[in-house]
Design a protein around this nucleic acid. Structure first.
Length: 273
DNA sequence: CACCAGGACGTTT
DNA sequence: AAACGTCATGGT
């Protein structure tokens, strides 16, 4: 149960480092393990040949959508202004990033955790949460792994138990948010049917979800490619456009441009551009 | 509208 | 070793 596909514009290392998915880890030189939609997957990359540890059926059902394989990222990159030295450099560095289509509940919680936090620590917190409150399952080798805890699981534990996962002041945010999902205050299923403005408005009702986190959830779980989360790194980037960033040029997919810029701010050479 | 606490730790100096 | 910063938000 190993299938191989030819996939352009995809770099597992870049996706793993890009900080949109906190449950993807490197387990070998070119191999990554991730857990999503109740499945454990190992993915290996050799150039454009990507191997998936699953059946063809599972690939079509889950991973084609998860890795956003029906979006043409080559076309998006070609649309970047050739005269824009900054974005050209950003695309050169992070051209293998894709916008994953992750699970909504997990994305809500992980991006509440992400606020005022760094990527290595976010991953640790998420691992601890899954270890403590997630259902256990076995992978294709028979090894145990932890699913992401359900809203019911997180609403059912004490705030202190959440704090023990090093969530700090985010513990009450997550507890309240879990309860709001369980009691139906916000309908997660319905969120998938809303447009960007309406979804963002609903997400803002959760405790601990502000403008930035709401946009991350829209981009990484609801696949609103127009969502443009502005954090401290993107603020730095925007300052490099004294005449204003050309949002109108990238209408409908500014979120993808945001990801290239975010990655470049984090991993690009400091003295370049 | 302008602060500022709250937590813990990765990163840089 | 010590200061600095981290994919912000809610409360005052």
């Amino acid at each position: 149960m190993m299938i191989t596909k030819e996939i352009p514009d995809l770099d597992l290392g870049q996706i793993s480092r890009s900080g949109q998915c906190f449950r993807m880890r490197q387990i070998g030189e070119d191999t990554y393990a991730l857990i999503a939609f109740g499945r454990y997957l190992e993915v290996r990359q050799e150039g454009e040949r990507i191997s998936f540890s699953c059946t063809e059926e599972e690939f079509e059902k889950i991973w084609r959508g998860y890795f956003d394989l029906d979006t043409d990222y080559g076309r998006i990159k070609q649309a970047v202004d050739p005269a824009d030295a900054y974005l050209q450099a950003a695309v050169r560095l992070g051209g293998g990033i894709r916008i994953l289509q992750q699970e909504l509940w997990e994305t809500i919680v992980t991006f509440i955790i992400s606020q005022r936090n760094n990527i290595p620590r976010i991953k640790k917190c998420v691992d601890m949460l899954c270890r403590a409150f997630g259902k256990k399952d076995v992978d294709f080798r028979g090894e145990m792994y932890d699913l992401f805890p359900t809203p019911e699981a997180l609403a059912g534990v004490s705030e202190k138990d959440l704090r023990d996962c090093n969530l700090g002041y985010r513990a009450p945010y997550i507890h309240k948010t879990a309860r709001m999902v369980c009691d139906g205050t916000v309908d997660l299923g319905q969120l998938h049917t809303l447009d960007h403005g309406a979804a963002r408005q609903q997400l803002r009702r959760f405790c601990g979800v502000g403008e930035k986190v709401a946009d991350c959830i829209c981009l990484f779980a609801l696949h609103h490619m127009e969502a443009f989360p502005v954090d401290t790194h993107i603020q730095d980037m925007l300052r490099k456009y004294p005449g204003g960033f050309p949002f109108e040029r990238y209408e409908g997919y500014a979120g993808m441009i945001q990801q290239y810029a975010f990655y470049y701010e984090l991993f690009g050479e400091r003295n370049l551009v």
